[in-house]
Design a protein around this nucleic acid. Structure first.
Lengths: 388, 388
DNA sequence: CTGTTAGCGCTTTCAA
DNA sequence: TTGAAAGCGCTAACAG
């Protein structure tokens, strides 16, 4: 009596122009199966103490699938006080490599039963607005921050009001949990490759000076130089944004300076692309007159002129580990709050942008006097990639 | 006894140390302001009939901001039966240009009061899973589909159960609302540029043959050829995936074929990058021996060798219009269900990959004698782009 | 093993 | 102008 009345009213008022969901609810299934909705809830969710008759159990499942029941996320979130959703804030200028991070994070999130919601860091103009709409409005249980644009200020806000976030590839005053790649090692490997090809005057095309990620990469470069007993000349490290234009500008400066390097280790892929263009513009042949390495790998590296030698970092693991850490925090499991992804080690991918230094410095001939032997590495097999 | 055991177990597993939201609710504000929560709700939302005393009004605002109140999205969604969230499905292999679409969509969404949730089309393995978690679970009010990976099958499912979606840059059997760019015009413009430089044997590096986007681009190419009275030779249109590898392979085929083109109009940017590499690999100089144009523009085009002449499409508007259309549908406002973005017209960006045909074709091999006149266009000024 | 009963935090009639 | 009350669809004690 009362019930049917309420029911009708609900149906009436629900007649919005276009209904969003199929609209079949737990109650519908319950009615159809002749049980209470709490029973349906238990069964459909495999509730722990779910000792249910096989009969009702299957009846419920049948009805549910017959009606096409899907639980409503908002209702569930409200009742459970958790959304099972994780957010990831990415730089507004989507760079070449972030997609690997996202993919890794997404896979891990799915495995743990979360939905990953990616948000452009410029989504609401400023990052703090994004934080507001995601975190404060309770759209996500936790947040991955993979954007260098987020200022320390915003991050502080975040950390104060909301502990459930982890920073990717950036360390901020040790306060926020973070997972980083081994930037130092990666850059070390790239630089070493250059050194092993006989280069001694090696410059570093670094990122913005105020980002610790950038500093770690420079550190790896310096470490390699030191290990080889090489000096880092004055002005051999230039700081520029991690993009093509930055690389162009930085490389131009390096090549115009007093002691021109015979090799450049770039701290990013995009900058290396710009650097290649700059060298070309100054008629400096790569790799004959200038060797070049890039940090991070992407398919495009294969198709540049020349194909770029890069060091591929375990970006997918970065995303995955970040999700795992976040999950631990959300579930109260203890664990490290700062991890450096080591597992798939940085991998040097030799292509054609590094050559042996043409003439040895100071009559110190390198034993393997083979000149640059650009292996004619064929680009990889085409794989399907759809249009937008 | 038994019960408390279960209880304990539950509590244990539920031990979520860190609460997700500040947790201040409408009731808290109401209590603090000494009014009912319904009043707070009205005031804070500027309810239309909100005839409220200025006194209570400001008191409520004060308390709300003092307490740092932010409405909970789940509760609101549940009560209002809408999430004010829009989803956008993007290709798992994030291409160079999708970011502009996302940005346009995001801006429009924000203006209309939506949050845009971007989801990798491979989020849950298959697109239909993504649809499930977004649409069926009611996480979004509507969905933009900007992914060619989504098969027509999945799309059909979508359309059946859920009308509130619009397809970007793809038309599917006329059933789903869609907004597309003027692919035909864009390709026409690129091809015409080639024609105006004296080329007659012009090939088209097209996308997958079964995607209508791709067909429209080819149509533009053909239209330009026809308008100039030029013939499209047999095998002058090759279909490949819209990526570097596809472009590499397609270009290789074109350059190896019987009647080698003096110019290639690529139907995507990524493919053009691969094409440039292929030409290089075959020692075919661009633009001296081969002119090249690409469809869509991105900063990287400036830094290739040679810098690519492209046609920039109004991708931001594409995203924006799609959101507007979706919003119309959600609010029951009528309007066109198929729009072609015309407003910022496709724009040809001349760089250095197109040269005047060295000498009139006699169907003879071209000597590398006369060259074009590559303008030494400097790459654009560096702009800040942060690291991941 | 299943049903009853309270909410989760918010919106929204309907009264006052 | 404001308050009371009834849900939105779901989960989670608790009782039977």
């Amino acid at each position: 009596m009362h019930n049917s009345l309420v029911q009708d009213r609900a149906d009436l008022s629900r007649r919005k122009p276009s209904s969003l969901r199929p609209g079949v609810t737990l109650a519908d299934v319950a009615r159809a199966a002749g049980v209470d909705q709490s029973t349906v809830s238990r069964v459909l969710r495999n509730d722990h103490g779910a000792r249910t008759t096989e009969a009702t159990r299957s009846r419920i499942h049948d009805e549910a699938s017959r009606l096409g029941y899907v639980a409503n996320a908002a209702a569930r979130s409200l009742a459970m006080r958790r959304t099972s959703t994780l957010g990831i804030l990415i730089p507004s200028s989507l760079n070449l490599v972030i997609v690997d991070v996202i993919r890794g994070a997404q896979d891990a999130a799915r495995e743990l039963g979360y939905v990953l919601m990616v948000a452009d860091a410029s989504e609401l103009g400023r990052a703090s607005d994004a934080v507001r709409s995601l975190v404060l409005e309770g759209r996500v249980d936790g947040l991955l921050i993979a954007s260098g644009t987020i200022t320390d200020e915003v991050t502080d806000d975040l950390l104060d009001g909301f502990g459930n976030c982890v920073i990717l590839n950036r360390r901020i005053g040790g306060r926020a949990p973070s997972v980083i790649e081994d930037d130092d090692l990666g850059m070390f490997i790239a630089t070493r490759e250059l050194i092993e090809h006989g280069h001694e005057t090696i410059a570093c095309l670094a990122g913005p000076i105020d980002i610790d990620t950038s500093r770690r990469r420079v550190a790896g470069y310096r470490r390699a130089m030191k290990a080889a007993g090489l000096k880092v000349g004055k002005g051999s490290v230039v700081h520029r944004p991690f993009d093509e234009a930055g690389g162009f500008s930085g490389t131009t400066e390096l090549l115009s300076g007093p002691n021109r390097p015979s090799a450049i280790a770039s701290a990013s892929l995009a900058a290396a692309i710009g650097g290649l263009a700059a060298a070309r513009g100054m008629n400096v042949g790569v790799p004959d007159e200038l060797s070049f390495t890039a940090f991070h790998d992407a398919p495009i590296a294969n198709y540049l002129s020349p194909p770029l030698t890069t060091v591929a970092m375990p970006l997918g693991q970065l995303g995955r580990q970040a999700v795992l850490m976040l999950h631990r925090r959300l579930t109260g499991v203890s664990g490290p709050t700062h991890v450096t992804v080591q597992d798939p080690a940085p991998r040097l991918i030799r292509r054609e942008s590094v050559a042996r230094l043409a003439k040895p410095r100071l009559g110190e001939p390198k034993s393997a006097a083979v000149l640059g032997h650009p292996k004619l590495l064929r680009p990889t097999t085409p794989e399907a990639t759809p249009a937008i």
